[in-house]
Design a protein around this nucleic acid. Structure first.
Lengths: 214, 214, 214, 214
DNA sequence: TGTTAAACGAGACGGTACGTCACGTCTTCCG
DNA sequence: CGGAAGACGTGACGTACCGTCTCGTTTAACA
């Protein structure tokens, strides 16, 4: 999971050609977006990119890592963090645009395929967390901070918890497909998060209930 | 996704032997729990079960389908729906025992592997929804109904939404691993759900906010 | 039926390793000679040669083709074309040494297995004719030519016909096993061929008998 | 190789049904004649005959044995032993009609497939010799005997040798396909056999040539 | 004529081998 | 000397048949 974003210091000889790297990323991205991560093979990417397989393995340790570099930046590029003036407004924007992306015909399942892949590729999982999940959450953090400042979130609330309660339900329907993942659902989730946050229910440690001394 | 649970009516000929079916399921379950779905191969199951590959293909259309039949019942068998007398108590029980299961050393990742698998196996996805997700949600439904009766959930609330906001965050950390999935987290999620529900924020259709006429 | 003997011109990439090819041929030859063509399996050859199955399929299109390359050269290497000074002497040498080969304990049935195989493998059949039957007949041709020069075969005789009348009966007993295939039989066949040839009975077109104008 | 022709004594219960046996033989014959022995499978025959596989295995020990019973009688039924008044005439009739049969579009390769099969099925080989080769040669024997009586074959000649020198070349071209197997070839072979026989070259033991004391 | 045991169709069973695919590594040679 | 080309050993795939076996179900000869 070192490739592409990490500049590789070449002591001797010609550095890895940007041409080759770009051709590989382009081919990989096309395949993943068109057919999904499961259909992408190293051999297929090599052929489409007009490149030897070794040139891929030289750069990426696994198919997941390549796919990650190929498409994650595009996913992240999606939308700037909104600032509508209210917590619920901001969260609604975030959730609705996420839902819109997830429902895109070609490429909408890409996130799902990555989450599938990281269940059996620990190195990819690390990259996924560090370079996707954490990054997007860091970027959305100001929404929470501003809401705290405005008093829409009780002091002492846990921003991570709020993020999980926002994104979790969305991903849940996205990955399980048991019920429709639409903007109405997004809004209703947001409504619950905002209400609970205002209530002070997002405290870092909850009042003890059943297990007062766990 | 037809096998095992559906009694196959054989008019003539010898019916599929329960012995063989059981041996296959046992072998598959052992492998999946010990090493994960990705390590499970049809050939490995056949060998461990002392069975011909054809006998497996005769019963299940894909490795996911077999794995599903092999382990899902065991997962579902886990816990009865609790009745503590309060919404928050019930949800806490559900969430905490789910977290405990997810953290089991051997087998705790099984759910994750299934969710990974259904991203590229549509038949398995159908089975997953019908025979796992829907089933467990149906089973947990009384929690919501009792809470409505007790007035802990505002009338007109959407039980499905509440379920998603409960399970979603748990699965989110489980699948992405970005932050610890422990009982404290479970309780805090539950706290938020309960608070929002009491507020009436789980209404089937939210008040309109930014997009009053979308 | 292209492999091994035809140098494969590889412009780029690593050429097929001679090591691997030789190991496969050796393993195949051992199995065919020891147990017959029917016992030879691609998987068995791959295992004995310490080679992947794919490396065999990369080189030969069928089991017959591999077996052919593995053993035919050895069969052909058998004996130089004799020159005893008389037709009957030459033919006797040829026939007797053929009979001796056919009766060898281990490997004597190899020819039979090939003839069996070509009945259902058209590609192998072509190779068999071009690279075995035709080749050995071409090599033995001088026997006939010298006999014609010496006057032991009537002018206008058909060398192919003579070959068939020599080899045909030998193969007939070899393949059907209805009567012993020994050197006595070989000599008696040779005796008949030589007598008929001297008579001028091997003419390219026979006197018309029953069907004067077919 | 016991089946069909050997009436099976049934002490109790229902005897093997002639219906079933006939259906199997019919299906087998159709498949063999249409597609060759290699394409015939027990499962295919069972299906086409509307019969269980066990009913086939109950009757025949191998696929070759079944095929043999299914088609050999039809092959043998071909032609009565001719009597034209001359050796060459009789042999020509025999050879030419054999050639005609061998060239029949559908079924002409059946003999070849049997000869292929007996190379790896010893039981079938025995049946082949006893119930096909020997039988047809016994039937054609009078041709030789009459020729001896007429003085067309030198006394002391070996009828078996003559048969082999007649049939051998025909089968040789039939099985190897290196040169055309037509009536012209048949006549030329016959011409050589007749000439050699008249010469006395078909003696049971030949004059010693190169190896006077083998 | 009613009983009963065999032969029956169906097809499941444990196996073997098939030919294909993609893996990740390794080797050669071109530019 | 980097890189394309692609051969390599590996191992799982899903299929086709093998020959054996075990089911109920005919069905015809015996009692």
């Amino acid at each position: 999971m070192k490739a592409a974003t990490i500049p590789i210091g070449t002591k001797r000889g010609r550095p890895r050609s940007g041409q080759t790297t770009k051709a590989i990323l382009k081919a990989a991205a096309e395949i993943v977006i068109a057919s999904g991560l499961a259909e992408m093979t190293i051999e297929g990417v090599a052929e489409r990119a007009g490149v030897g397989k070794a040139s891929i393995y030289r750069r990426w340790p696994s198919k997941g890592a390549l796919a990650f570099d190929a498409v994650v930046d595009a996913i992240l590029a999606a939308e700037p963090t909104p600032d509508t003036g209210s917590l619920e407004g901001d969260l609604a924007r975030v959730a609705e645009s996420w839902v819109r992306l997830a429902n895109v015909r070609r490429g909408g399942r890409t996130l799902a395929h990555f989450i599938a892949e990281i269940q059996s590729d620990p190195d990819l999982a690390v990259a996924w967390r560090e370079r996707f999940v954490d990054r997007i959450r860091r970027e959305r953090r100001p929404i929470i901070e501003r809401a705290i400042a405005r008093g829409e979130i009780a002091p002492g609330s846990d921003p991570e918890l709020i993020m999980d309660v926002l994104y979790g339900p969305l991903y849940h329907r996205y990955l399980n497909g048991h019920l429709p993942l639409d903007e109405s659902f997004a809004r209703r989730v947001v409504r619950m998060v905002a209400a609970a946050a205002l209530d002070g229910a997002a405290a870092s440690e909850p009042r003890h209930l059943l297990k007062p001394s766990s």
